[in-house]
């Protein structure tokens, strides 16, 4: 069965402030916002990143933009100045989140419900 990744149904951008990374996530199709809101919980995001993100993950919802904003604390290996990471500013944090695998069945069920 073909795998479904977050990148297939969403897009976003990551930025940095000190050792904090933020990633905004929007659905590619607006009607998928409710699915993202339901599936992409802060706990799932935190678990996805394993030891890359040492601190808390907060999620803000902006319904009027169909957007989620994740704030990942202690996420950049010390922050732009201290971090020894190749990507010390976390420009690739968004694509790292976008490779989260989405259960195809869950998504298909959501789309089916929408169609009713």
């Amino acid at each position: 069965m073909k795998k479904l990744y977050l990148k297939d149904i969403a897009h976003g951008r990551s930025g940095d402030k000190g050792n904090i990374s933020n990633i905004c996530v929007y659905p590619r199709k607006k009607e998928d916002y409710a699915f993202l809101k339901d599936y992409l919980t802060p706990t799932r995001v935190k678990d996805h990143f394993k030891s890359m993100v040492k601190g808390d993950v907060l999620r803000y919802e902006v319904d009027s933009l169909q957007g989620l904003n994740f704030v990942l604390k202690e996420a950049l290996g010390g922050g732009a100045t201290f971090s020894l990471r190749l990507d010390s500013l976390g420009k690739s944090m968004s694509s790292a989140l976008m490779r989260m695998e989405i259960p195809v069945e869950d998504y298909d069920n959501y789309r089916k419900e929408l169609g009713k």
Partner: peptide, 11 residues
């Protein structure tokens, strides 16, 4: 949209 929430924490 991608720029609007760029490097913003609490919207």
């Amino acid at each position: 949209k991608e720029q609007l929430m760029y490097e913003i924490h609490d919207p």
